[in-house]
Amino acid sequence: MGIEDDIAILAAAPVFEAFGRDALRLLTFAAERRSLEPRETLFSRGDPADGGFVVLSGTIALAPRVAGGDTVLAGRSALIGRLALFVRGERPGDAAAQGAAEVTRITPTLMRRVLEEFPDAAAVIHDALADDLSALNQDFARVRAMLDAD
């Protein structure tokens, strides 16, 4: 896979879809690539969350966070660990390659560098996170209204 392919994959990933070409190029050059064998663990619950992953090829299986939940499959251009792009924490679940796979890891330090060098990208991220927070707040309001009705 060449640099243009990697840029196209990042451009299709959530969060990065509105980034300009130069910001995507910086991410592509500076991010860490990792190849995974079939069933190889990408990370385990409780591991340090020191960056997000974009799936370049293959499929990553994300184990359910709660007992009885469904496994989520993340394919090409999927973003795994969006919050870990910005802050360090703990992985909430397990992730492993279903077959051979390749991912790129983007650390909070790299994200900060890109956002400092490309303020337009920072504005896009800010707006997307604000929209997500607003939607979450509306969901909580609906739940509260349902609870109050009982």
Rank of each mutant, 00 (worst) to 15 (best):
residue 1 M to P: 04
residue 2 G to D: 15
residue 3 I to M: 07
residue 4 E to K: 07
residue 5 D to K: 03
residue 6 D to M: 15
residue 7 I to C: 03
residue 7 I to R: 02
residue 10 L to S: 05
residue 15 V to I: 15
residue 16 F to K: 08
residue 16 F to C: 01
residue 18 A to R: 10
residue 18 A to F: 01
residue 19 F to S: 04
residue 20 G to K: 04
residue 22 D to W: 03
residue 22 D to L: 07
residue 23 A to P: 14
residue 24 L to S: 08
residue 24 L to C: 07
residue 24 L to M: 04
residue 26 L to T: 13
residue 27 L to V: 07
residue 27 L to K: 01
residue 28 T to N: 10
residue 29 F to Q: 09
residue 29 F to M: 10
residue 29 F to R: 08
residue 30 A to N: 10
residue 31 A to N: 02
residue 31 A to H: 02
residue 32 E to K: 11
residue 33 R to S: 10
residue 34 R to A: 11
residue 35 S to F: 05
residue 35 S to C: 04
residue 36 L to V: 12
residue 37 E to C: 02
residue 38 P to S: 02
residue 38 P to Q: 10
residue 39 R to I: 07
residue 41 T to L: 13
residue 44 S to M: 14
residue 45 R to S: 02
residue 45 R to N: 00
residue 46 G to V: 03
residue 46 G to Y: 10
residue 48 P to A: 12
residue 49 A to E: 11
residue 49 A to R: 13
residue 50 D to V: 12
residue 52 G to F: 13
residue 55 V to P: 01
residue 56 L to G: 08
residue 57 S to I: 03
residue 57 S to R: 14
residue 59 T to Y: 12
residue 59 T to E: 15
residue 64 P to N: 13
residue 65 R to T: 15
residue 66 V to A: 13
residue 68 G to H: 05
residue 70 D to F: 15
residue 71 T to N: 08
residue 71 T to Q: 11
residue 71 T to I: 15
residue 73 L to Y: 13
residue 74 A to I: 10
residue 75 G to A: 11
residue 75 G to I: 13
residue 75 G to R: 10
residue 76 R to T: 10
residue 76 R to M: 09
residue 79 L to Q: 05
residue 80 I to G: 00
residue 81 G to H: 15
residue 81 G to F: 14
residue 82 R to K: 14
residue 85 L to A: 04
residue 85 L to I: 07
residue 87 V to N: 05
residue 89 G to N: 13
residue 90 E to N: 14
residue 91 R to G: 06
residue 92 P to N: 07
residue 93 G to Y: 15
residue 94 D to S: 05
residue 95 A to N: 07
residue 95 A to V: 10
residue 98 Q to T: 12
residue 99 G to V: 09
residue 99 G to F: 06
residue 100 A to E: 09
residue 100 A to S: 12
residue 102 E to H: 04
residue 102 E to R: 06
residue 107 T to R: 08
residue 108 P to N: 06
residue 110 L to V: 04
residue 111 M to I: 08
residue 111 M to F: 05
residue 111 M to L: 09
residue 112 R to N: 12
residue 113 R to H: 02
residue 114 V to S: 00
residue 115 L to P: 05
residue 116 E to D: 14
residue 116 E to N: 06
residue 117 E to F: 12
residue 117 E to W: 14
residue 117 E to H: 06
residue 118 F to M: 02
residue 118 F to E: 00
residue 120 D to R: 01
residue 120 D to W: 00
residue 120 D to I: 00
residue 123 A to Y: 06
residue 123 A to V: 04
residue 124 V to R: 14
residue 125 I to R: 03
residue 125 I to K: 08
residue 125 I to L: 03
residue 126 H to W: 13
residue 126 H to V: 05
residue 127 D to L: 04
residue 127 D to A: 11
residue 129 L to Y: 08
residue 133 L to E: 03
residue 135 A to Y: 12
residue 136 L to G: 00
residue 136 L to P: 01
residue 136 L to C: 03
residue 138 Q to I: 01
residue 139 D to P: 01
residue 139 D to H: 03
residue 140 F to Y: 09
residue 140 F to N: 00
residue 140 F to H: 04
residue 142 R to D: 00
residue 143 V to C: 00
residue 143 V to Y: 02
residue 144 R to L: 00
residue 145 A to M: 01
residue 146 M to L: 11
residue 147 L to A: 06
residue 148 D to S: 04
